[in-house]
Design a protein around this nucleic acid. Structure first.
Length: 281
DNA sequence: GCCCAGGTATAAA
DNA sequence: TTTATACATGGG
């Protein structure tokens, strides 16, 4: 069963034939915020919240190969379809004109609402690692220890991961990060950290709490807040972001972007990766 | 084979 | 408080 959702392309006034997309599937799923989506011959396939989805673009339409129930209950929220990104982007670009040039490379990028536990684990794996390899480790973790479901495996819950030995976690290729995953799982399973509670804490308090998890530093904490708890004011800052910030917004702090700093960050990050050579130092 | 990866913990300056 | 180094591994 398919759910067809129309996202009309809009002619942007005063800018010739440039179009504004409010949802670009590829940019959204390949901008380094998620690790369980695979590109196929047509579109992408992935699993989240125990459901599998095949999604692709057809002209102005986004096709969700799912039941209407799953679309309403899961994917609508997962892809944050209730948020008006076009309005936010316009507001951000008006306040920060230099951002406009960068945002134009991925105007339809969206911040996913991923599961917080999965986000914690995948970004623990991200440290000093690369995206293809992170995806491989996550896939082996799910295939080995996630409960089987139609067309794949669920992401294993903290209680399940907490049972695994450090050796078992190394066997899937996590390397020195195995001990971090194990500690995080135990903390989450024991209730030493309540991710649900953290998601609603005041931002500074939430950052502090997340960084009590071994292996979670300022960057990973920010990724968990933005991608796994939908705190839009969070601003993950890696080496590429720092260079891009220095060039486009010298002397500025992430806070200048306000309550939607996370979206601004995503435009800047995407741009800096498309222009690697420029920011290679 | 070599280089590097959406960083962090730890030690040293 | 700032700066340097190890870390496990395999994709490119």
């Amino acid at each position: 069963m398919e759910t067809r959702v129309n996202f009309p392309q809009k002619e942007k006034k005063n800018r010739g034939k440039r179009v504004e997309r409010v949802f670009e599937v590829g940019a959204t799923l390949e901008c380094g915020q998620c690790f369980r989506w695979e590109r196929g011959e047509q579109g992408y396939t992935g699993i989240a919240f125990g459901r599998r989805l095949h999604i692709w673009e057809e002209g102005d339409e986004i096709i969700f190969d799912s039941t209407p129930e799953d679309f309403e209950n899961i994917w609508y929220k997962y892809f944050d379809l209730g948020t008006d990104y076009e309005a936010i982007r316009e507001e951000l670009c008006r306040a920060h004109p230099k951002l406009r040039e960068m945002a134009e490379f991925a105007p339809g990028i969206r911040i996913l609402r991923q599961e917080s536990w999965e986000t914690l684990v995948t970004f623990l794996l991200s440290q000093n690692n690369n995206i293809p390899r992170i995806k491989g480790i996550v896939r082996r973790l799910c295939e080995g220890y996630g409960s089987p479901m139609e067309g794949g495996f669920r992401f294993p819950p903290a209680e399940r991961v907490a049972e695994l030995s450090e050796e078992a976690l190394k066997e899937i290729g996590s390397g020195f990060r195995a001990k971090y995953i194990q500690a995080a799982a135990r903390m989450a399973a024991d209730g030493e950290i309540d991710l649900n509670a953290v998601s609603t804490m005041e931002l500074g308090e939430a950052r502090e709490k997340l960084q009590t998890i071994p292996g979670v530093g300022p960057k990973v904490a920010e990724c968990i807040l933005l991608y796994g708890m939908h705190r839009m004011e969070a601003f993950p800052m890696d080496v590429w972001m720092k260079r891009a910030m220095e060039e486009f917004f010298p002397g500025e702090r992430p806070e200048v972007f306000g309550e939607y700093a996370g979206i601004a960050q995503q435009y800047i990050y995407h741009y800096s990766r498309l222009h690697k050579e420029r920011f290679r130092g």
